[in-house]
Design a protein around this nucleic acid. Structure first.
Lengths: 346, 346
DNA sequence: CACCACGAATGAAACATTTCAACCACGTCT
DNA sequence: AGACGTGGTTGAAATGTTTCATTCGTGGTG
């Protein structure tokens, strides 16, 4: 790629056409329908493009086409590896469809989410994937109303006005607590919050359901609320837990996600509690760091990449298939038992 | 935002102009220079925009402007929280400048990196930040040659044809190993690889330098090579380490990054080695998970967000300031001592 | 030889926005 | 009264690409 000194402006098809001594339409044909142009001129045009260092101007294409060649994913928490893995799954699918992927991060704040969405609508992205702060927020409805292909990720939509992919969180909660009951635990903590987060509510609900079905007293499933789903909140929940007198202290904790679980685990070890003997711990998501913890963490596995791939598939279908019907894809979570819950008690 | 049923095409300035009974230039003025238009017409136009649900078409703006309102960061490993934090720093700065940020992930593969770059050039992004797979790859030089503002992140550029921000990795290696020497260790492993990664080479070099300066025998600084900087590679290095007869086994390990260190830590614990008594561990990057490990990890801290913010500042300067001069920003790493290196030995 | 068919190349229109010179009332100053 | 500003608005041009109807030229056919 030889290149003349930059004279300010990037070369356009027009420049290429002039250099190759053909019309501008022909250059476009070389680019988009190489079949219809004769071998000799095609070659000449290609040489001209190489010499000038020509690169298609994507904005102009978009303007003409009316839509961009990009998808977007607005994630809830960039610091949580779970969402990174979901994003990776989406990217794989986007790549296969030769689309770019905008990855945005709302960080759990509604106004940032809204700002991102505004930008994405302006960019005329082909479709939007989102794990929303609040699935009922009006700015989400706006997107759907605009007719932009739209998929909710890791959150089921009740309304059904759009596609969604998610894991059955209630079931996930059931699996986790059933595992603990199996292990002989009679007093269990649920660590998680805030309740405004749907995932938290549902995992807790599953926990309560199975607890009750096994005939355990409701008072022995203790809710330890947190302000967020982060490592440091997990640590602070650990402090509260370790502070309880040992006869009232739960022998096991089910955490709403792995970050909490890792924080809890860390504090427990610091405070001299043995895991799993004094305190068994179950997390949720099965992020890579869960297995890598010094006491490897039992966790409820979600098919993270697959969640992303499926979501991308759905949004692409909505974008391209005229008789697309909205679909709620549900995945089944699975328990991955590791050292943090040990073996049967007593 | 009332909205007429979607008739296929999103409303344009022209539609707004018609609805408000003004010329299209006036609508543009309302958008871009609200001051010059009278209050009454402005109001009328704004109402029309709201009624039609008008949203600026970013591609058309870009086409006209010649450049997009976006930056891009191509990161080396999306699975490493370190780069996520750098990206967050960049995003903060981009946000402040009211620019979008494309976050791409090369995953360490040169051809993916190249593909991303192609796309970004097509998009006419205002600037590109990148932590490259190979800083000498020809496709990077192409970018710079094109005159696109360009900053290398976490890698110093020797050539000086562009800006770069990085931490002094040699110094980081020195700090880590000096800390271990302070703690009384006489046999230390350097865990890291492949050597094609500049960061690995330099951290190792720093380690060797200080080891030699303290007059330790070169043979007692043992290189444990890895194939990548991941948790699972750390684990496998741990296997090799734990397999050594205890009289030849190093009493401390300096890992080229925290992911390796966490993997190593995990295996060490599994294999029954006490940390730090049997094996002290130092990581690099000080990612959040380092502090959250069950044996909190001593690590060499890089100012991760600041790295990103500075990089963004430089790329914006190159994009907007006509007498920009390339700058190599270097940060000083700092040791964060935690439990994994304990106190003085013996 | 005239006509047609056909492959190849062309030129103009369209996409949505921004900018800028021109224009128009209307009031003010001389 | 005429000139001059001035605040507000307009219309056209320009950005780079794609598409599509048109044209051109050539070789074959009747």
């Amino acid at each position: 790629m030889t290149q003349q000194p930059r004279n300010g402006r990037a070369p356009s098809v027009k420049d290429v056409a002039a250099a190759a001594g053909v019309s501008l339409g022909t250059v476009s044909n070389v680019l988009n329908r190489p079949g219809v142009v004769s071998a000799t001129t095609r070659e000449r045009v290609e040489r001209a493009m190489a010499e000038l260092g020509f690169v298609r101007n994507e904005s102009a294409r978009q303007l003409r086409a009316g839509t961009s060649r990009a998808l977007a994913y607005v994630m809830l928490d960039g610091g949580n590896p779970f969402f990174q893995d979901v994003a990776e799954g989406i990217e794989i699918a986007a790549d296969a469809a030769d689309l770019s992927l905008f990855v945005c991060n709302s960080g759990g704040r509604a106004e940032r989410e809204s700002k991102h969405l505004d930008r994405l609508v302006q960019q005329r992205v082909q479709g939007i994937l989102i794990t929303p702060v609040d699935p009922d927020a009006p700015h989400l409805a706006d997107i759907a109303r605009r007719g932009i292909p739209f998929v909710m990720v890791d959150r089921l939509s009740d309304a059904g006005g759009h596609c969604s992919v998610a894991v059955d969180d209630v079931l996930g909660g059931r699996i986790a607590v059933e595992h603990l009951i199996d292990r002989g635990h009679e007093r269990v903590a649920f660590v998680g919050g805030p309740e405004s987060i749907g995932q938290v509510r549902e995992r807790y609900q599953g926990a309560r359901e199975v607890w009750e079905e096994f005939g355990k007293p409701a008072g022995d499933l203790i809710h330890l609320p947190t302000e967020a789903l982060t490592v440091s909140e997990g640590r602070s929940a650990g402090e509260r837990l370790a502070g309880l007198p040992s006869r009232r202290r739960p022998t096991a904790a089910f955490c709403a996600n792995d970050l909490l679980a890792l924080g809890l685990l860390q504090h427990a070890v610091t405070a001299g509690l043995r895991v799993p003997d004094d305190l068994a711990i179950v997390g949720f998501d099965d992020i890579d760091f869960a297995a890598a913890a010094a006491v490897p963490l039992t966790s409820v596995r979600q098919p993270r990449q697959e969640l992303g791939r499926t979501a991308a598939r759905l949004v692409l279908d909505e974008a391209t298939n005229p008789d697309h019907v909205h679909e709620q894809a549900t995945f089944v979570p699975a328990l991955v038992a590791r050292a943090s819950t040990g073996t049967v008690r007593r």
